[in-house]
Design a binder for these strands. Structure first.
Lengths: 213, 213
DNA sequence: TTCATTTTGTACCGCTTCGCAAAAAATTAA
DNA sequence: TTAATTTTTTGCGAAGCGGTACAAAATGAA
């Protein structure tokens, strides 16, 4: 990670801005349908510059996604873990997610990963691995939160933690898909609220006595 | 729908078999990444024949999907509605779904609709409409079944039917995605079982007294 | 000034894409 | 046999694809 190579012609683009613009193209068009020319136009970088800076198309996508994930991960984690109430934490988490899946300035675009590379995942092992990693990340996030909830007595200790976590992951998968199919924020927010409420009801949240400590 | 045009050179292909082969290509490669040459090789039909028989790429996909939907719809409907027990009906339905999403002879491929055109849905309005239609079909299927269950007293009459149906649709969306990410049958079957169990628990199934009539 | 270094812009590579025109082949009807 | 009809085959054309070679431009260092 060289910080500032002082020699040579200074670059005219901002790498993070370029990656953000690239991700926008991928989200709108899908992975395969996005060409290097599209990326070149969206970033303002000539194709060779793009290649020199980030690598080939898959690497551009991966770097763009990594940047997006890093930028949004903290907000999600905070919504989920810094809120004492489990229900409020989940509602906040999904509100955050929906805000990304349905950008204010544009049509619903869904998830930059789930909604974009699902079509290519079966044919390209590298893309398949990318998708599997994303799914696994969500699963483990929810499992962590559910285990904490079980320890804190927010849900009964005998709850099927993995099943409950999977049920919440399913909500996320469904939101991504519905956004991709054109659903708007109010519809998705209502869906998330009722799904979370039902999931917590299934877990027996509120029926158990909180354990001290 | 002309049945048997007796005149002219007889066609050498079976239209339904060709569409099934085409759908296989779409499922493996994704919509955009599947070229007419791929379809030509898979069906054994030359590109102009393909074009003359089914139309352009999108029409080929649509016709292939319609054939698939017609062939699998009856099995799903039967699993869901012909089984008196709600839980068994749902378990049978999802077992059926998982059988399609993870074919025995090949790697997991996911849903021929949800997993294949998600990437293109935001850029192409026609494909977006195709995806929205598929999502809506699943929603209405589950809503019908839940309303019947409420009427039959299998779940309390005051149940949030739409929310419960959406929760089951979310399971289907999640199964499609997980299959696309490489998940195998046992994992998905276990996931479906626990999701259905939790959903019915949330609905309060079994806690209400069945109403006669 | 001169050189080393880095980014940019032009032009091109071989290959694939979708779509179609036109001819050849295979059949039935007259 | 001849004509009419339908499908298959061949081949093309204009455009697009991912990727790269190479020279021009812009900077700091010597």
């Amino acid at each position: 990670m060289k910080s500032k190579p002082s020699r040579g012609r200074p670059r005219e683009y901002d790498p993070d801005a370029a990656l953000a613009a690239a991700l926008g193209e991928f989200r709108r068009r899908g992975y395969t349908a996005t060409s290097l020319d599209h990326l070149s136009a969206a970033t303002g970088m000539a194709r060779p510059s793009l290649y020199a800076a980030f690598g080939n198309k898959l690497e551009i996508y991966r770097k763009a996604v990594r940047l997006y994930a890093e930028q949004s991960a903290e907000r999600r984690r905070s919504a989920l873990f810094d809120e004492p109430s489990l229900q409020k934490g989940l509602d906040g988490y999904f509100a955050e997610i929906i805000g990304v899946y349905v950008p204010k300035e544009s049509d619903p675009l869904g998830c930059p990963i789930l909604s974009v590379i699902s079509g290519e995942a079966a044919a390209d092992p590298e893309i398949g691995a990318e998708l599997a990693t994303a799914v696994g990340r969500t699963d483990s996030l929810f499992r962590q939160r559910m285990m904490l909830a079980a320890e804190a007595g927010e849900i009964p200790a005998e709850t099927d933690v993995a099943g409950l976590a999977a049920m919440l992951a399913a909500l996320q998968h469904s939101l991504a898909l519905r956004a991709r199919a054109g659903a708007r924020r109010p519809e998705l927010l209502e869906l998330a609220r009722s799904h979370v409420a039902l999931a917590l009801k299934a877990a027996g949240a509120g029926l158990a006595e909180p354990t001290p400590g």
